[in-house]
């Protein structure tokens, strides 16, 4: 009986265990000239910074997956919003706050479009978001004429507001601002998912849509709202991305949707809906980010990295499939 409980506990914690294992292996193998390049504070902060963009998108994706839907458009929304906010600031001279609000609005608009098509027109999320993925990417390229818009900070014509640069800064020269934004958002959404009615309703809809509807949950409104949240989170990631690379590029963000799904899946979110946690997604994103970092530090070919990632996703989801039985 006791061993059964331990087994269940081990299964439940397997992604945490995997994270710890990768951490330990990384700390051991990354010693160069008697110095540990992985455990270096600056490197660890790099991992966090790299994780934060994918992590922020994955927060939204987790909610969508819990609903039993999927959002393929987030990557293109990242491209559109990073282009859009750069264009608005550099070409149209918008200030920091208006630019941020406009960016969030673009995201919300796409989420609204996705949500309306899915709830009111009863289309499948996969198709709707596949379509809006095309639409957003096309709009982004049209807006910027296919090329990136470089961001230089300062006051005056053609310069982005200096406040925007904060998004790529580090506090005390160490802790990256994006990571702080990510962790704050994660805490907020963890709270929402575990402590609020909205969170419970999401799980309910994902678990059994019909029953939730009959139980008086306004399924359509919640779906619509969740899709808007997801696209707005993608907009936040887009602004961070634009600040990080000092450029708003219409081709940025391609493949981000799959990275986000991968983080969720590794973290234990079920693609069939009704199951998943924010903390799991955090761990999934950390595993992916840490792996990227270690493979990069060891100078592993970036194409080999792709393969390793692919195998990792299979293993992770396979372990969960067993857990269900």
């Amino acid at each position: 009986m006791k061993t059964d409980q331990t087994k269940v506990l081990i299964k439940k914690m397997q992604s945490v265990i995997a994270l710890i294992l990768i951490f330990i292996v990384a700390s051991v193998i990354c010693v160069q000239d008697g110095k540990n390049v992985f455990l270096d504070a600056r490197n660890l902060m790099n991992v966090l910074r790299a994780v934060s963009e994918n992590g922020i998108i994955a927060i939204g994706m987790t909610m969508i997956l819990i609903l039993g839907d999927i959002d393929l458009s987030v990557g293109s929304v990242v491209g559109l919003v990073s282009t859009g906010c750069a264009a608005l600031m550099v070409w149209n001279g918008l200030g920091f706050i208006p630019a941020v609000l406009a960016s969030l609005l673009i995201g919300a608009a796409f989420g609204f479009f996705n949500g309306i098509c899915i709830t009111k027109l009863k289309l499948q999320a996969f198709i709707v978001t596949l379509a809006s993925m095309n639409i957003a990417r096309g709009l982004a390229r049209f807006w910027a004429n296919g090329v990136g818009i470089p961001l230089t900070y300062g006051k005056g014509e053609g310069l982005a507001p200096p406040q925007f640069e904060v998004l790529q800064m580090r506090i005390n020269g160490l802790i990256p601002v994006p990571a702080i934004i990510f962790l704050i958002l994660l805490l907020i959404f963890h709270f929402i998912m575990t402590r609020t009615r909205f969170g419970r309703q999401l799980y309910a809809i994902g678990g059994n849509r019909q029953a939730s509807y009959l139980a008086g949950i306004n399924v359509d409104r919640i779906k619509l709202f969740t899709f808007m949240l997801c696209s707005m989170l993608a907009s936040v990631a887009a602004m961070i991305h634009a600040a990080q690379i000092s450029q708003g590029g219409p081709n940025e963000g391609s493949g981000y949707e799959l990275n986000a799904v991968a983080a969720c899946a590794i973290g234990g979110t079920s693609l069939a809906g009704g199951k998943g946690t924010m903390l799991g997604t955090l761990i999934g994103a950390l595993i992916l980010g840490m792996l990227d970092n270690v493979l990069g530090l060891k100078g592993v070919n970036s194409n080999l990295q792709l393969m390793v990632k692919g195998f990792l996703i299979i293993i992770a989801v396979f372990m969960q499939a067993e857990r269900k039985e």
Partner: peptide
């Protein structure tokens, strides 16, 4: 046999194959 969702299984083989092609 592995009971993975097709989305995940083929997402993985997509990245693996692309990586292999470059290698």
């Amino acid at each position: 046999v592995g009971k993975l969702p097709g989305f995940i299984a083929t997402l993985a083989s997509m990245t693996v194959l692309r990586g292999l092609a470059y290698i």
